[in-house]
Amino acid sequence: MSDLLTVLSALGFGVLSSIIPLFNSELYVGVVAAAARPQITAIAVLAMAVGTVAGKLFLFVLASRGSEKFGVGKAMNGEEKPLPATRFKLWLRQTSDLLMAWLGDSRLGPLTILLAASVGIPPLFVVAVMAGVARQNIVLFAVAVFVGRLARFAVVAVPIALAAH
């Protein structure tokens, strides 16, 4: 029963950490890898990746529906007031515009999501929201998040599991 609880808690923590970034999924995977048997660790890593996909899909769908409702991502017909120019605001605007362009592209979008899911740059939380606004393909989004997070969690878990057992 404790093995089942380990796997189910990894699934739940995957969902929680993907919606509330304060909860660190890599730390949780490391603890599971140190405490559980290697076979259970592998299943827990898989469950954590699935949970992360579920949470990120939740953010993706919310952002997608919100952008439809509020017209985000559409041209403002020149009615948008420019922000006072500072270097940081200019850099932030240019970076978000570039990220939206990448996420809106059918080839660069999944690669950007995969990079965010595996390396963390750009942050996956931000990418999930922006991908929803950019109308990225939801299946490609889910697959890229799953593959990236599975790889990231495996990179964390394998050395710890080998050292602990």
Rank of each mutant, 00 (worst) to 15 (best):
F13Y: 11
G132M: 05
P82A: 12
P82S: 08
V119C: 02
R149L: 01
R149G: 03
R37D: 15
A10F: 15
A44Q: 13
L57W: 06
A54W: 07
E79G: 13
N137E: 09
S96D: 13
A144V: 01
N77L: 14
V72E: 10
M76D: 15
T41N: 09
M100I: 07
A128Q: 07
R65Y: 05
A42P: 05
L150G: 05
A85V: 12
S96I: 15
A117C: 04
A35Q: 12
I20C: 11
F153C: 04
M48V: 00
G55P: 06
L103A: 03
R135A: 11
S106Q: 09
W91C: 02
T6D: 12
L83E: 12
A10L: 09
A63V: 02
Q39Y: 12
I121T: 15
L90F: 12
G30S: 00
A154N: 14
G51Q: 04
V139G: 11
I20A: 13
T112E: 07
V32S: 07
A54K: 00
F146G: 06
G120E: 00
G12N: 02
W102D: 13
W91L: 13
L4F: 14
K89S: 13
L8N: 08
L62P: 11
T41V: 04
P159W: 11
R87T: 09
F141L: 05
S64N: 10
S9Y: 08
A34S: 10
F153H: 09
K74R: 15
G73E: 03
L27S: 15
I43V: 11
A131R: 06
P21C: 10
V45C: 07
S17P: 09
R107H: 10
I43P: 00
E79K: 15
S25E: 05
I43N: 11
F60E: 08
K69Q: 14
G14A: 05
R107G: 13
A54F: 09
K74S: 07
L8P: 01
I121Y: 10
L57P: 06
G132C: 05
R135G: 13
G71I: 05
I121E: 07
E26M: 06
L22V: 15
V29Y: 10
V143Q: 02
L4G: 15
A44C: 01
V45F: 07
K81S: 09
G109N: 11
H165C: 01
L4T: 09
G51L: 01
A75G: 12
L46T: 01
A163W: 14
L46H: 02
P110I: 03
T41H: 07
Q94M: 09
P82Y: 05
L98P: 02
G73I: 10
G12C: 01
A49L: 01
L57I: 11
F58C: 04
A101M: 08
K81E: 08
L5S: 06
F58A: 13
M100L: 14
N77Q: 14
R107K: 15
L124Y: 08
V72Q: 12
F13P: 03
T6G: 06
A63M: 03
F58G: 07
L11E: 06
R149T: 08
S2W: 11
V139I: 09
L46W: 11
V158C: 02
A42C: 08
L115S: 12
